[in-house]
């Protein structure tokens, strides 16, 4: 009621401000609509091609299908069967062994390759080109190539070791339980070490040149520079690589299938092969889907750890900067 004073000028501001905000929000809403429109096909496809099959698989794992194809609710019976199935438990052990071997060989070799290719030497350009070659080979081809490479009759590995005098007679590692698993790890790691090397090398190349030089001036030796400079710098990349290698190790099918089809016996029957057999050989959709859920949970847990670790390491990196 009191007369407006000069000091109470603000009421005038909205009058000029409001149309501007409205215009911006109209613009904003149209922008949002355009964005949603562009993103919708991809979102629908991912819902239909990933989320729905994942949900459906989970439902199948809780069902029992009889010979007539009728489905009935089974609760957790399929999972209980898995826990008492020696083949499944054996397969789980094999998978863990495989994944650990795959992770170690791929990561350590990849790290070694990256460190090597980050040095300056004659032939460096050649080595950097060659690094990508195994990565470009399809997984299943890595299995085929290695199967024959270590073959007990025609394999070149035997040929070379024999001529070098390392072995007295040709060996056939794929007909031996441990040998087959070792070759399966090597065949997979042959490709994955390249992937690892490519990523770590890309990380190494982002280290500013001044840093190692400054450390050298300060008298740090090679190991100290690696331990306190290179390794912390690479931490985010290494976290990524370790998690990816672990997931790939647990899910590996192609290489092992081409190499041994799970044999000899069940020696290399990893979970993915057990899953394939349950679904498409024994057509036991319940047990197969329960195995799929186990694999999916492993992947999700690893993915969750991945995000956590990555978040922490970027937080650390940002804290440092």
């Amino acid at each position: 009621m009191s007369a407006p004073t000069i000091g109470q000028a603000p009421p005038a501001a909205p009058r000029t401000g409001r149309p501007a905000t409205r215009r911006r929000s109209v613009q904003g809403r149209a922008d949002a609509r355009f964005g949603l429109l562009l993103a919708t096909p991809a979102l629908l496809l991912v819902l239909g091609l990933v989320a729905w099959p994942a949900l459906r698989t989970t439902l199948y794992s809780l069902q029992r299908v009889n010979l007539a194809g009728e489905e009935s609710w089974a609760g957790l019976a399929n999972f209980r069967t898995l826990l008492t199935d020696e083949q499944f438990l054996g397969s789980l052990t094999t998978t863990v062994l495989y994944a650990v071997g795959f992770l170690l060989v791929s990561t350590l070799l990849g790290l070694a390759f990256a460190l090597l290719l980050n040095e300056t030497f004659h032939g460096q350009w050649l080595a950097r080109s060659l690094l990508i070659v195994p990565w470009a080979c399809p997984w299943v081809m890595c299995g085929i190539i290695w199967k024959w490479f270590v073959d007990g009759e025609v394999g070149a590995l035997n040929g070379a070791l024999y001529q070098l005098g390392v072995i007295d007679s040709y060996a056939a590692p794929l007909s031996d339980n441990t040998g087959a698993l070792v070759v399966a790890v090597l065949a997979g790691a042959w490709r994955q070490a390249s992937f690892t090397g490519l990523l770590i090398l890309a990380g190494l190349q982002t280290i500013p040149r001044e840093l190692p030089e400054a450390a050298m001036v300060d008298g740090a030796n090679i190991w100290q520079r690696f331990r306190h400079l290179t390794l912390p710098w690479l931490r985010p990349v290494i976290v990524v690589v370790v998690i990816i290698n672990t997931i790939f190790g647990f899910m590996q099918f192609d290489t092992v299938w081409a190499l041994t089809q799970g044999g000899p016996g069940d020696a290399t029957s990893v979970l993915s092969i057990y899953l394939y057999q349950q679904l498409f050989v024994y057509t036991n959709t319940g047990l197969g889907s329960a195995t799929a859920v186990v694999l999916g949970v492993i992947a999700l847990v690893l993915g969750f750890v991945f995000v956590k670790l990555l978040y922490r390491s970027t937080a650390i990196a940002e804290g440092v900067e």
């Binding site: 990933v50 099959p53 994942a54 459906r56 698989t57 199948y60 997931i247 899910m251 099918f253 993915s272 899953l275 394939y276 679904l279 959709t285 197969g288 889907s289 799929a292 859920v293 694999l295 999916g296 992947a299 999700l300 690893l302 993915g303």
Partner: peptide, 9 residues
């Protein structure tokens, strides 16, 4: 993260 092999059925 969802493994392709797990959702094939």
């Amino acid at each position: 993260v969802v493994p392709a092999i797990a959702i094939v059925l």
